[in-house]
């Protein structure tokens, strides 16, 4: 394991982290390192400065505020996955996170780092898009902003963070009462990257779908929201038949180049299937358990 030479910085405050990131245009942020360190070792990434934010105080929060669950930039996937707050208040996050990597990786990897890395075969961007996650971004001058998921994922391995800026956290809206979450993924092996995966959340009141959220990863260079399926479900009955009909409306441009592991024709064909299964599993959560 032989990365190219880099300068290592370990700030303890956000302001210091921004100063370190300002040292060079080639500076990169290191959080859990589960994506970046392999790239360093392969010399596919050769940052001049590595800014390790693991000692920045307060970035590991998992907390509910103002109707949203906030997950800090250094909160480990394993900690997030085992959080009761996450499981009960944003169940789709937990459902998807269980499919992200092996326990050893999750012990070190971070939810935010995984989202910022934005591998197009990664599970969590679909969840962020489906739930309208908000990313807390600090610009190089220290000014904070909130970037919605719909604007955050730009392209494979590219997100809307200005050069020298830092993502300090992500927040997801708390699931309303009567919500079921479902995640369905096809992967080449257990815990592997997705060939294609769908994240779905249904909110139902008195047998009627009041809100439907569906997004799919693995189709193109960014996750896609299945708006036609969502519209078809919203206001209609929360039935298996409605779900099947809605899943047939799942559409999206499927790019061959984005996933050499799986032909575009395959992903096109299974798109309605994974959407249907994610929705079905969301629906199943709403049914009273016998």
């Amino acid at each position: 394991m032989k990365p190219a030479a880099f300068e290592y910085r370990r700030p303890t405050t956000i302001a210091a982290a921004l100063d370190d990131l300002a040292l060079d245009a080639g500076a990169r942020v290191l959080a859990g390192g589960q994506s970046l360190v392999p790239l360093l070792n392969l010399r596919l990434a050769t940052p001049s400065v590595l800014v390790d934010i693991n000692r920045v105080a307060g970035l590991d929060e998992i907390a509910e505020r103002d109707g949203r669950v906030h997950i800090g930039a250094t909160a480990r996937q394993a900690v997030v996955l085992s959080s009761d707050l996450v499981r009960t208040r944003v169940p789709l996050v937990a459902a998807a996170l269980a499919r992200v990597a092996h326990p050893q990786v999750r012990a070190r990897g971070t939810v935010v780092g995984n989202l910022c890395h934005h591998d197009p075969a990664s599970e969590m961007p679909a969840v962020a898009l489906a739930l309208d996650a908000e990313f807390a971004v600090v610009a190089p001058d220290g000014s904070p902003s909130s970037v919605p998921a719909a604007d955050f994922f730009l392209d494979s391995f590219a997100v809307a963070v200005p050069a020298g800026g830092l993502v300090t956290g992500v927040s997801f809206p708390v699931a309303p009462p009567g919500t079921g979450a479902g995640f369905y993924e096809i992967a080449r092996k257990a815990k592997d990257f997705a060939l294609i995966a769908a994240a779905a959340q249904l909110t139902v009141a008195a047998g009627t779908v009041t809100e439907a959220r569906v997004a799919v990863t693995g189709l193109g260079h960014r996750p896609l929201r299945m708006t036609a399926a969502e519209q078809s479900l919203t206001g209609g009955p929360s039935t298996a038949e409605a779900v099947r009909d809605a899943a047939r409306l799942a559409r999206g441009e499927v790019l061959a180049a984005v996933n050499t592991r799986s032909p575009a024709a395959y992903r096109s064909r299974v798109l309605p299937v994974v959407v249907c299964r994610a929705l079905t599993s969301a629906l199943a959560q709403l049914e009273p358990t016998p």
């Binding site: 392999p38 392969l42 080449r188 092996k189 257990a190 815990k191 050499t260 592991r261």
Partner: peptide, 27 residues
């Protein structure tokens, strides 16, 4: 899962175990 595939011009396609898929206990 596993295949050490080559492109027609003789480039091996997998570069790491992210591309060369091997079974784990979960499989």
């Amino acid at each position: 899962m596993e295949e050490l595939a080559y492109s027609p011009d003789g480039q091996p396609l997998p570069m790491t175990l992210q591309d060369y898929i091997m079974p784990t206990l979960g499989d």
